[in-house]
């Protein structure tokens, strides 16, 4: 655990979270959520939880993003807020 690295990663995570819920295009929101998951995975690798980190990288950032892209392509891409 390195405090400066941890702080920078937490800052990136918060920026990605705010961008993911405020973007109007849903496909961009899904991509930003994938980036959020990868930053989260880096944060866990930095905390020493390597098993959790690669599970997150494969399951949440991989399969979760694929599922969300499939759902957005089946439905509408624009959102009002």
């Amino acid at each position: 655990m390195i405090v400066a690295f941890d702080f920078i990663l937490l800052l990136f995570v918060i920026i990605c979270a705010i961008a993911a819920i405020s973007v109007k295009d849903l496909l961009s929101a899904v991509y930003i959520l994938g980036a959020y998951s990868f930053f989260m995975c880096l944060l866990w690798a930095e905390m020493g939880a390597v098993d959790v980190a690669f599970t997150e990288a494969s399951v949440s950032a991989g399969i979760g993003t694929v599922l969300l892209i499939a759902a957005v392509s089946k439905t509408k891409r624009r959102s009002k807020d």
Binding site: M1, A17, A20, I21, L26, A29, V30, L33, Y36, S37, M40, L43, W44, M47, G48, A49, V52, S60, G64, L68, A71, V72, T75, S79, K80, D81
Partner: peptide, 25 residues
């Protein structure tokens, strides 16, 4: 928007998991 709600649920769950992992450090 309902997809925004699902994205919010994902962020919520990830924050709780992050809290639990940080107690192990």
């Amino acid at each position: 928007n309902l997809i925004k709600k699902v994205i919010g649920m994902n962020i919520f769950q990830t924050a709780i998991i992050l809290f639990f992992v940080s107690t192990a450090a």
